[in-house]
Design a protein around this nucleic acid. Structure first.
Lengths: 215, 215, 215, 215
DNA sequence: AATGAATGAGCTTTCATTCAT
DNA sequence: CATGAATGAAAGCTCATTCAT
């Protein structure tokens, strides 16, 4: 097996993409993208307002015409990340509401993985820099995050109840399956030689096996 | 299912423990423990030399009598973390050298999980702050890290070859199984209501299912 | 003879003057003047950024909006000093190009002395703090300095060749005549009771005698 | 004429020599020599106690078993430098007490130059770092320094009175002749291709010409 | 005589932020 | 909308010096 050399970076991916339609126009949006790249690379504390401004090509004071503080840039990124995740998982759950638990679980895991392959920098910031946010700025994201975890918990319970799944410890299954997706953001990239679909499908199968679902 | 409220912290665990026998005596060791706690909580860039010194109860200048720079404190933590992980995985692999691939995989995953439950702060720093290290200070740890990944890859290949495992995409299986353990450090703690053994056993079973081993 | 008491200071003069037209306007110029005074008095290493800022009446951080480092303040002073010296010597040499070597030597020494009486602090910094400068920042000044020494060497050679001067060891004559002027910056001041012109004329006569020119 | 490239160093010479018989034995003497080298190269403020200790091969705390402070190391160097200068000039003046003023002036200048060629580092520190010394530590040296200047002033006055010399402005002649010697310490070295005697003889002749003595 | 550990003060520089223009 | 200048606070680190051993 060819293990690609492990890189001591927080994210392997390069493009600081944001979901369609959420990037504000003009300078405000470019600040957001620069913040995304730098926060993903160096963490919130490790990135400076001057670095962000420099990447955008503006004076650091100009940033304050668009965001009231460095923390608010992070807050907007974290909000966008959580909303995208929540939207995709909610959509996947709704779309498969009447399917078997197995199909719904697969859909949720696929959605979960794909949001991490599509926006790896955003995912790394969203998952890893929440601690740097003022509690009041973090609160809305925390609510979305809890809803996402409950979506996963609910399908596991449904499958356990109706006999599709055989789960010894549902809580650990949630942490495992959730954790699988989170890690994807760190290493997914073109060097891997796998498409986003391939990873999503494979990880969905892993999840089904974790809960002993027939496949 | 009772999902405990998700906490916006990098580590849930509290005790800034280091493996037996590696903590240097006296002030040097206390600096290491304080650095561990603060780097785990706030990241390398988010923790200041004065905070570390304050936690130890020394003047910030005194720190430099023991370590030549802030980066060297991190470097020692990262080195310890990688050596512990490497030692445990190597031991597990050696102990099960003559067993089936399934038993060896289980042993590796158990060891991997246990090192994350036993030293969660160290694991978070070891996995998450390597990027902040000067390349020359990081190099030895990167070598150990690659060896660990190869241990896992080798047992997967052995099981795939001898028919114990059925793996579509071995590389993705490595990332998945490896990723499972890494995440443990973030949420394992007393509030979870699971012992370290319970988590390790369960995760070992998850891994075996991921590779379709008979159990 | 009334020898004024010798003072253990690097410069006796007080006014931290810079040549006309080179002081930048506003804060940037006041930083330069404060740096001049403090570097002259205490040397580069002995003067702190906070002292400079305090003398200007600004926060020490503000200094960095005008100069990228303490070394760059020194670099600008050293550059100004060398350019003024070079300009005056070049002008003196050009003005007397068609005169006798004796008249040209006198003009050069007068110019050399006058630049030291007019800007003694600048001369002390320019001559005495070059060693503290990064080589790349020092390079342009070193070139000017070498050109100045060659101006002096050339007139000595001309006078030696055409019989106006009688010089045993031209190299030592250059060091002696050059050294005469350099020292002036340390002790010239109002307490001396001599005008700049008196010193310049007298030293020019000294130089002519050193090379045995008819007067 | 081959002007050697001008070097942006405070002293060109290398050997950190002290006069015979004054270097204290053992560590105390090695501290003095290390201080001499570093103070000459970087100035008092630019050299640290740890650098000195490092050069000696001792712990910086050990230095305080030999000298009560960094300033006292400088003070001892400055004292030694002034005593050597005073001793040599006094001896030269005494030896030529009954000679012509011209011969006495030549002897004084020769002695002055030779002390600068023989101990250039010491001379640079002695002349250039007095300002960094506490006034009470500097006082004895200042007295010696004034005596030296008076020796020179006296012979000039004698020569002027008895008609050997023709001096317009004795004070400026003192500054000029004194300044000649001081500068020697900065550039004298093996690269010059002149012996100490050659320089001393030549500079003595320069001095006689400055005062219009018959030669 | 020498040391390692410790310290308070200070260093140069960068931080996020403000404000007048 | 954008800027240059400014700031208080704090960053990592070095300073000369002290002290118990």
């Amino acid at each position: 097996m060819d293990l690609p050399a492990w890189e001591p970076r927080r994210v392997v991916a390069m493009a600081a993409d944001l979901p369609d339609g959420v990037t504000p126009p003009g300078t405000r949006g470019r600040i957001l993208e620069a913040g995304l790249e730098l926060f993903a690379e160096s963490g919130f504390a490790g990135a400076s307002i001057r670095q962000i401004a420099g990447m955008v090509g503006i004076n650091s004071a100009t940033l304050y015409a668009h965001y009231p503080s460095k923390g608010h840039v992070l807050a907007e990124l974290v909000r966008i990340g959580h909303e995208e995740m929540w939207a995709r998982l909610t959509e996947a759950a709704a779309r498969t509401r009447d399917d078997s638990a197995a199909r719904q679980l697969a859909a949720l895991v696929r959605a979960h993985v794909l949001v991490h392959t599509d926006y790896p920098l955003l995912a790394v910031v969203t998952n890893g820099e929440l601690h740097a946010l003022d509690p009041e700025l973090a609160a809305p994201s925390l609510r979305l995050r809890d809803e996402c975890r409950h979506l996963l918990a609910e399908v596991l319970e449904r499958g356990a109840k109706n006999g599709e799944f055989s789960v010894d410890d549902p809580l650990l299954a949630v942490t495992a399956i959730g954790g699988l997706g989170v890690q994807v953001a760190h290493w997914f990239g073109p060097a891997l030689g796998r498409t986003r679909e391939q990873v999503a499908d494979q990880y969905a199968r892993f999840a089904l096996r974790i809960v002993n679902a027939d496949q």
